[in-house]
């Protein structure tokens, strides 16, 4: 599963019918099993890239392909910023929703329960989302995206609303899941440390629509203490400098 974005441009039309360019001539190739983070100031089009990759938005120019086929709705697993668990459905029914919608996804309740166990939510099958903590809801939402069965997962700032401690736990948890499952992940974050800790490559979006690509010089498997390595600290300072000098 290779995802290719060729010369993709997108602008949105506001209420005054003015066109605002968000993405300009983006070229990117994401290899199978890669973990890519997208960072950048607000308004640089991070979420837009993800929504283009789901097929929710159509690019004005260029094309987005998975394995040489144009992308369409239902081709990737998508996890938006909010967990968006349906409040009237139990956790089990929430994670089953993809298999209800897509004909090519078949999953029994037993299989879904095993997955819940795997993400540490066993015993919560028949509980409503409001009874779960933030971290647990986020894990359920991730599982829902995962159980769409797609090889590419797009995660839009999934841990943005969590407290620092839970966030750290969730990052390690996400890495372990990713290593076991051989998925390709595109991950949006505001948190530079998070981006460095998780990814193979970081895409830095600039307000002037330039896109910079930075490789993370840390080996796998990652450990939290690696963030204190010299190369990680240097990279972090470099990224901070790049972002700090910009205004939107």
């Amino acid at each position: 599963m290779t995802v290719v974005l060729k010369n993709v441009s997108y602008s949105y039309t506001n209420e005054k019918r003015q066109k605002n360019l968000v993405i300009s001539h983006l070229n990117m190739e994401i290899k199978n099993g890669e973990f890519i983070s997208i960072i950048g100031r607000s308004g640089t089009g991070k979420s837009t890239i993800l929504r283009l990759m789901t097929g929710l938005l159509q690019p004005d120019e260029g094309e987005i392909q998975i394995d040489q086929k144009d992308i369409s709705l239902g081709d990737v697993g998508y996890m938006p910023q909010k967990d968006l668990l349906l409040p009237w459905r139990t956790i089990l029914d929430n994670i089953m929703i993809a298999s209800e919608i897509q004909q090519d996804v078949h999953m029994t309740k037993e299989e879904a329960s095993i997955w819940l166990q795997r993400v540490g939510l066993s015993g919560y099958e028949h509980v409503l989302p409001k009874q779960l903590s933030g971290g647990m809801r986020q894990r359920a939402a991730f599982l829902r995206a995962l159980l769409t069965g797609k090889d590419v997962l797009l995660l839009d700032e999934p841990f943005g609303a969590l407290d620092a401690l839970t966030k750290k736990e969730m990052q390690s948890w996400l890495l372990s899941m990713w290593q076991d499952l051989n998925k390709t992940i595109v991950f949006i974050t505001h948190d530079l440390e998070e981006a460095i800790f998780l990814s193979d490559r970081i895409l830095l979006l600039h307000p002037d629509h330039r896109i910079e690509e930075i490789s993370v010089p840390l080996s796998r498997p990652r450990k939290p203490e690696m963030l204190l390595f010299e190369e990680a600290v240097t990279l972090r300072q470099k990224l901070e400098k790049k972002i700090a000098n910009e205004t939107t």
Partner: peptide
Amino acid sequence: EYIELLRSMG
């Protein structure tokens, strides 16, 4: 947002 989530699943 919910509608988009379901649309993204096809």
